[in-house]
């Protein structure tokens, strides 16, 4: 009975995490900010290490740490007028280095480093499931209410601002939401694999459709199918779930490329 509950938690966690990332995926892909996802997940790793070292609430500390570093990146790039993408890449590496040092400093550590680097669905508890449900609802509400602003934000922020569309505030809200999603998903997908789950669903969707709304729906469907198949395979063959889901999504991506190429040749 206990293992059954674990299994249900793990499955729900994988599904919900995949869905919440897939909702944001088309915007991340179109805005070409996948590197932000990668940076935030690596910064989250340092946050996790800090929480473990201080024996504090892991999700809360990681979230606060990610937001603090994101704010610092913004400040450093603006105050010193340096290229933001370079500052992000530097902070990404520094966060990983800091995370490794913090973990090594915790002499009596008794946790599996690989679980956070590559994800572990068995770490998911009831609170995580509730958080993921709330997050998915927040994501859907966010993109439904602010679709117009998000659409023009991804098209061209400078031009949208000239036309008086409030895209800057929406962009920062989007990054804030992205950070929360990544911190929650890191537990399931892992630091290294979370970016793949953020980019692959939309990359597949845009092989089939050239409209944003259908692309969001296809992204969610891709995440659902990949999570179900990936979960089943990982359960059957005792493989890491996050990694298998990413591989399933990659197979779907290859398939979409071939289908798209064939339909172009026919036309």
């Amino acid at each position: 009975m206990l293992s059954y509950a674990f299994l249900i938690h793990a499955l729900l966690g994988a599904l919900l995490s995949g869905i919440s990332l897939a909702i944001l995926s088309p915007f991340v892909t179109l805005k070409k900010i996948a590197y932000m996802g990668e940076a935030l997940s690596h910064i989250a790793f340092a946050g996790i290490a800090l929480a473990l070292l201080l024996s504090l609430n892991l999700s809360l500390v990681t979230m606060l740490f990610v937001l603090a570093v994101a704010g610092l990146i913004g400040f450093v790039s603006r105050f010193f007028q340096t290229e933001e993408t370079n500052v992000i890449t530097i902070f990404l590496s520094v966060a990983m280095a800091l995370g490794i040092i913090l973990i090594s400093a915790k002499k009596d550590y008794s946790f599996d480093l690989a679980s956070y680097l590559f994800g572990n669905v068995l770490l998911i508890n009831k609170t995580d499931i509730y958080s993921l449900i709330v997050l998915s609802v927040v994501n859907i509400s966010f993109i439904t209410l602010l679709f117009k602003e998000l659409f023009y934000m991804t098209y061209n922020m400078t031009v949208a601002e000239v036309f008086g569309i409030r895209v800057k505030t929406v962009y920062y809200l989007f990054l804030f939401l992205l950070a929360i999603n990544i911190v929650v998903a890191v537990k399931i997908a892992g630091v290294i694999l979370v970016t793949a789950q953020l980019v692959l669903p939309a990359s597949i969707a845009f092989q089939y459709v050239r409209k944003l709304k259908p692309a969001i729906i296809i992204s969610i469907l891709v995440a659902l199918v990949a999570s179900l198949i990936g979960f089943y395979i990982s359960w059957q063959f005792n493989l890491p779930t996050g990694a298998v889901i990413v591989l399933v999504e990659f197979m779907l991506y290859l398939l979409s490329l071939i289908i798209n190429k064939r339909s172009k040749v026919r036309n």
């Binding site: 179109l30 949208a160 036309f163 008086g164 569309i165 459709v209 409209k211």
Partner: peptide, 14 residues
Amino acid sequence: PATVMDIALMGIAA
């Protein structure tokens, strides 16, 4: 993924 109509409507969005 934007149509001509989508970009034209940008003028009204604000």
